[in-house]
Design a protein around this nucleic acid. Structure first.
Lengths: 121, 121
DNA sequence: TTCTCATTTCGTTGTTTGGCGAAATGAGAA
DNA sequence: TTCTCATTTCGCCAAACAACGAAATGAGAA
């Protein structure tokens, strides 16, 4: 029950759900997600931490960046069902399409460039 | 997206999830649910209204009482998947078993009796 | 080793949410 | 019709939460 509530609470914020959808094509680093949603880095980090704690995503650190991806096959059944539910319910929505479109543009940029841009001095 | 978030928010409170599980065997009236969870009537009513608005449950009024039941077959796919997810993830948990046990006892009581008992004067 | 910098953690603020009791509602009983 | 009473709505309080900027972290670069 406790684990299940961690899952449902993780899914109860629209920005977190959008992050799950954005991660469908493949892993992204924090600064790319920050750029995609126009939120503060600390806010994005918090959201990712909540999704991670729920087991919905996993992280990997390489060089200077932390990459997040959707949970892999060995994830618990409840987690996989949650991800399927999100995908089936929202993959074809306008919001997901708009995010995907903007993400495409961000993916074409240099990663270091994206990270530097996040700094709004 | 908006509808989906209504669903996930509805599922993000443990008492609401317990209510969904309690409704699995069949419909219950508000005072039975109130007795089952030991919450104020107004609180239970609010929770049921949120579940109803999300399409997860439906209501029916007969004589003096309002009965709530899980959403029927013609419910949207996302709703049916949500209910399946809850059932598969939690039906066999200790919490669900404990609630079911207490519910059994309440079901043996006279309905009017249960409603009157709720009044803690 | 020290420096750099992407990310996380901390502390604060405004909003949302769950809980309650009291008052309002409204459909059946009388 | 008026009365009864199960349920809903309202108003309030305390706890939880999302968002931000600033400070801390810690791994790679120099």
């Amino acid at each position: 029950m406790r684990e299940f509530m961690t899952l449902t609470k993780a899914l109860s914020d629209p920005n977190r759900v959008r992050m799950l959808l954005a991660l469908r094509p493949g892993e992204l680093c924090v600064c790319q997600i920050t750029e995609l949603f126009g939120l503060a880095t600390s806010t994005v980090s918090k959201h990712l931490s909540i999704l991670n704690q729920a087991g919905l995503i996993r992280s990997r650190k390489t060089e200077r960046w932390v990459y997040y991806r959707l949970a892999d096959k060995p994830a618990p059944v409840a987690v996989r069902e949650a991800l399927d539910w999100v995908r089936k319910s929202l993959a074809k929505t306008d919001e997901a399409a708009a995010d995907a479109k903007r993400l495409k543009r961000i993916m074409k940029m240099d990663l270091a460039e994206v990270c530097r841009r996040r700094c709004r001095c």
